[in-house]
Amino acid sequence: MNPLIIETAKSVIASSAPLVFAGIGEMFTERAGVVNLSLDGSILLSAMAAFAIAFLSGSLILGFLGGMLVGMLIALLVAYGAIALKQDQVAIGFVLTLLCADLSSFIGKPFVRKPGPSVPHWPIPGLVNIPVIGRILFDQDVLVYASYAVILVAWVWLFYTQAGLRLRSVGERPEAAFARGIAVNRVRYLYTALGGALVGLAGGGYSLSVKLGWSHRHTAGIGWIALAIVIFGGWHPFRVAFGAYLFGVLKSVGSLLQPGFPNIPTQVFQAAPFALMLLALLLVSGDREGLARRLPKPLRAIVQALLAGRPPAGLGKRFEQG
């Protein structure tokens, strides 16, 4: 196979890993019925925190833990504001988006463009020798392998465990779940925290691996993409991951095409993913049946399966416990 394609696929897989973490994390949060809208700010602040901690302590593990802690605390603040204080979760999430972005700029200033530690490359012995696939999937770093694990574990957890069933019932029909003895709001706190930790891991993934270092608004925009990918992915782990990889592919296609259009400023290419995000959302939210009817028969089922999915019925709705 063409080595250029292999290299591109490899880099898409690597660069999408943080987006997989953030997307799956937010998927868990939303499956429980809470929207953590703060992702764009959370990723920035946790990326900054992870880099700063790893830079100061020299420990990557501490850096990642710090980033995850930051993501988790922000998420818990959203959950607390929404559940205990009964405020609009969209409002709190939006305010936190702006607040965390500014915090990352202010606190992160001393760390701008400092050379720092990075996650080492670690090909998996044996597996890396599989033709084509080995080079693409197993010639990466630990973070990327963790992203595979997160996708698989999320899928098993959600659809094949008791805990997953409880989670889904809390998001779909909180009253029924409560009647069955599930502590709805406790489950919501738990999965918002878990989702936040994964979002924080995504932040660390950028500053310590995919987009090394720290700069002003280092990852701006990514959080919104992650939120859109959860919708695009119909709240299903595989499709969320597919959305993340699709975004990676589109981005690398964009950067491959860019030299061919020297007259178009780079900013236009940088904005393209967001326009595509909007189109993708239109595709999954709009008139799916009408679209499917216009397609040739063999494609119909595939497209329908790909675009299926609806938000958990209790998403964003408050639950009054007793």
């Binding site: 809208l37 239109l282 939210s285």
Partner: peptide, 12 residues
């Protein structure tokens, strides 16, 4: 008519 949440519509 597109059914996309206004937050993403506006942001896009």
């Amino acid at each position: 008519y597109g059914g996309v949440n206004e937050i993403f519509a506006g942001l896009g």
